[in-house]
Design a protein around this nucleic acid. Structure first.
Lengths: 185, 185
DNA sequence: TCCAGTGATGTCATCGTGTGACATCACGGA
DNA sequence: TCCGTGATGTCACACGATGACATCACTGGA
């Protein structure tokens, strides 16, 4: 007989998603999440820094993947092309995950605390993009601007994808990039 | 003899700025801020929704001013031109306030909680921009993208202005707008 | 076979944030 | 003169978050 069920973090994530959806973020206590996952509140805080973080588990992996795509862009690519490659790399990550993304995004949009956390995750992505662009020889100020633009495009496209009926995130990303070019023309 | 000194909110703002700078945000309690301002912690929360909000007092006025500038742009202006007018309107607001802005921004950058709050303020600005652009007849998706781009430009330019030695925010805003055009060319 | 070390978890105490309910009392108008 | 108003104080409390210490199945080596 095992002492503890395995994957406490996974159970906590699912319990949190379910309870936030059922009762709202504010109406849910960490103790409730922990109870449903079969652990104590203290254990919750051993797996997640705070009550918000439980919804942002995979964000660092996504960031790494997108940054790697920036680094892997052809040497001939300019700042915007490289950053576009990074953004487009997110496309396949969300392949077939639209329903889950939609549920999660509905929670985030409805909760200021969770929106704040999402913004700071995207700010971290922009910082990482900036570093990757600088490594490609792009001067710091230009790299920072291109990185921020890329993240903005990603954010807008992701929102459109979640709200719309289009199944393919990559298509939405491409059309949003095209619209950027059109807007600034 | 007056019962209370006037302008409790102002005293709380100044006390918070000073204590955050002296001891850091985390190292400062609301009770300390209230003490220095000569009130109780309960009164702090009557003036500010939470410990972060005390640093973001003027943000709604700034938003209104920028949105008004979008609305006031010439009828012939396109989406990006209108949003650029809104962004440029921030220039004179910060005229001669670079030292104060620098101190405040140093606190925000050093504190994740304060960064989160700043991001959500800028998100609110983007939402307001979107509505103002729609009122100008720009279709919703295009309006949202242009609004987000405008806020991104503002954010990057503000950061450059605060970090740099250039005294004039408007100049930095204009050059950042020009660099956007160049990047996406 | 036993035993010491490890690591995930539980328990307990405590501090800080944030809120509701109610009391206080100078001030201004009727 | 008196009453209502509004800003503040006081008190109690729930919840979030953290440090310190205890527990105990599991593992590897003697």
């Amino acid at each position: 007989m095992v002492r503890w069920e395995p994957d406490a973090a996974g159970r906590l994530r699912e319990a949190a998603m379910a309870l936030y959806a059922e009762q709202g973020y504010d109406g849910t206590t960490v103790a409730e999440i922990a109870d449903r996952a079969g652990v104590t509140a203290r254990t919750f805080f051993r797996h997640f820094a705070d009550k918000r973080e439980v919804l942002f588990a995979g964000s660092s992996e996504l960031e790494e993947l997108m940054v790697a795509a920036v680094a892997a862009a052809p040497a001939s690519a300019g700042a915007m092309d490289a950053v576009a490659a990074g953004v487009l790399a997110a496309g396949e990550v969300f392949e077939g995950r639209r329903d889950h993304s939609r549920r999660r995004q509905a929670l985030i949009v409805a909760t200021p605390e969770l929106r704040e956390r999402e913004f700071i995750k995207l700010a971290a992505l922009a910082t990482a993009f900036t570093a990757a662009l600088q490594a490609r020889g792009i001067p710091a100020p230009r790299a920072a601007l291109a990185a921020e633009l890329g993240v903005t495009i990603f954010r807008v496209a992701f929102e459109r994808w979640v709200d719309g009926s289009e199944g393919d995130l990559e298509k939405v990303l491409r059309s949003t990039l095209a619209e950027l070019a059109d807007l600034t023309a």
